[in-house]
């Protein structure tokens, strides 16, 4: 199964909408609830990161018998040091983002914790790709 969603940077009222829709699909497929939770937490964190830190992006999900593969692509400022960004507590979130309840610097560590394979690529001034796989 193949799913695609668009994500608008800065639009907090819609942030997490795509993740909510994808969660519904995963539930309909009757996947293990523990696996679903890990996927949707990682997905939601990555979706909110696009809203909070980038201009626009898309989410592509591919589901087969053995795994769920998620790719989030954005056009945005990129991440100068992925190593630093992965540290718990590291955040460049704006005051507006903090007002929305984000900016703990826990998103990327949460994504790492909840995925089986994680690959982040980023080009400063262009954008970021977060690519992860969870096995079923």
């Amino acid at each position: 199964m193949h799913l695609e969603y668009k994500v608008q940077g800065g639009n907090f009222s819609k942030a997490g909408h795509a993740s909510g829709e994808i969660k519904k699909v995963l539930k309909q497929l009757n996947l293990n609830p523990m696996v679903i939770k890990r996927i949707v937490v990682a997905l939601y964190e990555a979706e909110v990161n696009i809203v909070a830190h980038a201009y626009e992006g898309d989410i592509i999900v591919d589901i087969d018998d053995s795994k769920v593969h998620v790719v989030l692509n954005d056009r945005g400022p990129g991440i100068p040091s992925i190593e630093r960004a992965m540290e718990k507590g590291y955040s460049t979130a704006s005051p507006l983002v903090r007002e929305m309840g984000f900016g703990a610097g826990m998103g990327l560590p949460n994504i790492k914790k909840n995925t089986d394979e994680l690959n982040i690529k980023s080009v400063v001034g262009e954008g970021t790709t977060v690519d992860f796989i969870n096995y079923l």
Partner: peptide, 15 residues
């Protein structure tokens, strides 16, 4: 003390 739509989205994702 956070009352916005993300509170509910987060609760949904975190079960």
């Amino acid at each position: 003390g956070l009352a916005n739509i993300q509170t509910i989205r987060t609760a949904d994702m975190a079960e």
